[in-house]
Design a protein around this nucleic acid. Sequence first.
DNA 1: TATTTCCTAGAACGATAGTTCTACCAAGCC
DNA 2: GGCTTGGTAGAACTATCGTTCTAGGAAATA
Lengths: 189, 189
Amino acid sequence: MAADKLLPAKERIIKAAERLFYDEGIQAIGIDRIIQEAGVALNTLYKYFPSKAVLVERYLRDRDVRWRKWFNSYTRPEATFKHNILSLFDALNDWFHEETFRGCAFINAAGEFGDTKSDIFEISREHKKNIYLDVLKLCHDSNVINPEKLTRQVMIIIEGAIVRAYLNDDKDAALWAKEVCLLLLENYD
Amino acid sequence: MAADKLLPAKERIIKAAERLFYDEGIQAIGIDRIIQEAGVALNTLYKYFPSKAVLVERYLRDRDVRWRKWFNSYTRPEATFKHNILSLFDALNDWFHEETFRGCAFINAAGEFGDTKSDIFEISREHKKNIYLDVLKLCHDSNVINPEKLTRQVMIIIEGAIVRAYLNDDKDAALWAKEVCLLLLENYD
DNA sequence: TATTTCCTAGAACGATAGTTCTACCAAGCC
DNA sequence: GGCTTGGTAGAACTATCGTTCTAGGAAATA
């Protein structure tokens, strides 16, 4: 409907799909809703994306890159690894308070399709692994004995905060999580 | 197909629906699959459940009760609250190592439907709140100053472990989580 | 024997949604 | 002018799926 007519059609499709998929779920959104929201013809969509599945993949892969880029932007190379890890919870806190927050797109996608649609599930797994690796890189800069273990525990706190913020509507979950993480970082052997 | 013919039809339907919904997702399972798995006729299903939505609700409500009953069975009234809370992670550890583990049914359901199908989303929210209240009750038996805050933080660790165990295939997530929780309990003001 | 209850088998309806097809328009370029 | 490119509009095909309908069987009860 009210899509920016300035962008080329393909970009408008991607933008519309992303918003709708995240807001209302992948299976809940039909092609019709997407072309309506993007303001393009049905033919145009199928010209750029041969099937809905391809568009969904594109949505997830794009979001993986963009989300992590945004997430990591809260860290700085010159800061201590403790400071950087704690900063991630500031990112979460900002996210949770956004009007558009509707949980983790990948947890939701995995919930929609499970192992059955293995493509989508695998992308979700990769996303989670990618975040893990990003955090692991932060820990590697420290003199922590077991960075893998620490990263796993940090990731547990991060994922838990996301779920709580969404399903328990606890928008301050990042604050409580940050406290726990601080405790973890200070008491780490 | 190979359903116990001993149980009455309604029970077989519930059992089949539960297994299929949890294993493959709610939207992924059609009525046909359920009646096939339960070994009942289509008419029989519609006799007991006027619509799929009703059956889904039944599935979720039943699972909420059963899951929490199982979860709480790891605690004992005579034990200290610290011991009881840590025992919850033993429960999670057992769960994660089950062959049938496929994450939290309610996180998955919420991911499938989002706020759109508000009934299902609300049941998922209630489930999460119920667990929170169960844990809060454990904390109330202690002399902790701020039991609500502690409970929130414990819940973050629990939810995080579940997500990690599922989406990162980290079956030992409960062990790392238990360590974090121990740290939290020992350093609590 | 008649009747009710519980169940089965399978066709059929109706809506939705992904996908394809036909027809057409406007702009830029050779 | 003719051709390609990129787009629109909308009908139509196809499959799936939730749901309803018809017909009938088997066992218990009156």
